[in-house]
Amino acid sequence: MTINFDKGNGLVPAIVQDAVTQKVLMLGYMNQDAYDKTVESGKVTFYSRTKNRLWTKGEESGNFLELVGIKNDCDNDTLLVQANPIGPTCHKGTDTCWAEDNEQSFGFLSKLESVITDRKNNPSDESYTSSLFKKGINKVAQKVGEEAVEVVIEAKDDNDELFLDESADLLYHYLILLQAKGFTLKDVVKVLEGRN
């Protein structure tokens, strides 16, 4: 990999991202020696601008960043370091240097799960989702079955809009069923990862 260390007086920014959750954990700087040591040791190493020396993240705390991979940007002057963190990344004890929890997110589906959780924990008479939880697991499971059949029927036709609508209904009701059973998407993803 060609890295342009000249632009930054021998240093390039190194953005560290969790290889699993894809969360940005921190930003550090690398010179050629830090890059070489990172690749050789498998532990992310930076050049400390305040200490004027190499430092391996976790050398004092034990909270290492185990290297998964490094990518260069289009200008060859910024690195994206993917790593598996061992413990909190920030020196202040938080998961990230932005005080965010380093949890896997599924984008909009995670937001939807939060809404479903809220409807389960704070039922409302006006909420369709709350009404399903109130009717119990058998009704929720029945709805998933009905939606699955509708997806199969629409898959055999040529109306893509109806197929996608029914697919969305199936996914939504499946998320409700997961929570009715005490699970979330993360639990299903763990099973899939185990099969990979």
Rank of each mutant, 00 (worst) to 15 (best):
E154S: 11
S130E: 03
E66G: 01
Q82F: 11
K120D: 05
R195W: 06
D158E: 15
I86V: 15
S61R: 15
V191T: 02
E59Q: 11
V68M: 11
E66K: 12
E59W: 06
I153Q: 14
V68F: 09
T45C: 10
Y47P: 01
V16P: 00
K186V: 15
N72H: 08
F163N: 04
T78A: 14
V152T: 03
D73W: 05
E100W: 06
V68W: 11
T78L: 09
N138H: 06
Y47C: 05
G136P: 07
V144E: 03
N102I: 09
T2Q: 12
K120V: 03
A141K: 09
D75C: 01
N121K: 14
V68Y: 14
G145V: 04
E40K: 15
D73E: 14
A14T: 11
G93A: 10
P13V: 12
K111P: 00
P13A: 11
I3M: 08
V20Q: 08
T96R: 04
T129M: 05
V44R: 02
V16W: 04
A99G: 01
F183Y: 14
D6R: 05
E126R: 14
V115R: 04
G62S: 07
L11Q: 08
D158V: 06
R49E: 12
V151R: 07
S131K: 09
K186I: 13
V20F: 11
K7Q: 15
V115K: 04
E150L: 10
Y172K: 05
S110E: 14
E166F: 02
K156G: 02
K111L: 15
D101H: 13
N76W: 03
G87W: 09
K156C: 01
K186S: 13
D160S: 10
E193H: 10
A141Q: 05
I153R: 15
R49S: 09
K186R: 15
T56C: 07
E103G: 08
S48H: 12
C90N: 12
F108N: 12
D77P: 07
N122S: 14
S167C: 08
L65C: 03
A99M: 14
A148P: 00
V152N: 03
K156R: 13
L162T: 07
L192V: 12
S167Y: 00
D18A: 04
L112V: 13
K7M: 14
T45L: 06
T89H: 06
A148E: 02
S114N: 15
S105M: 13
Y35T: 10
E147T: 01
N138F: 01
Q32H: 12
L27G: 05
V188A: 12
Q104V: 13
P88A: 12
K190I: 01
Q32V: 02
L132V: 00
N196W: 09
N52M: 04
G28I: 11
K43T: 08
W98D: 14
S127V: 04
I153H: 05
Q142S: 11
Q104I: 14
K57A: 03
Y47N: 08
L79Q: 09
N31P: 09
S48E: 12
L162F: 02
C97I: 14
T2C: 03
S114G: 13
L178H: 09
N121H: 13
V20H: 10
F183G: 03
L65D: 00
L79M: 11
L27T: 07
A34C: 05
V39T: 02
P88T: 15
I15P: 00
D157A: 13
D158A: 11
N102D: 14
I153L: 06
V140Q: 00
H173C: 03
T56M: 07
T38P: 01
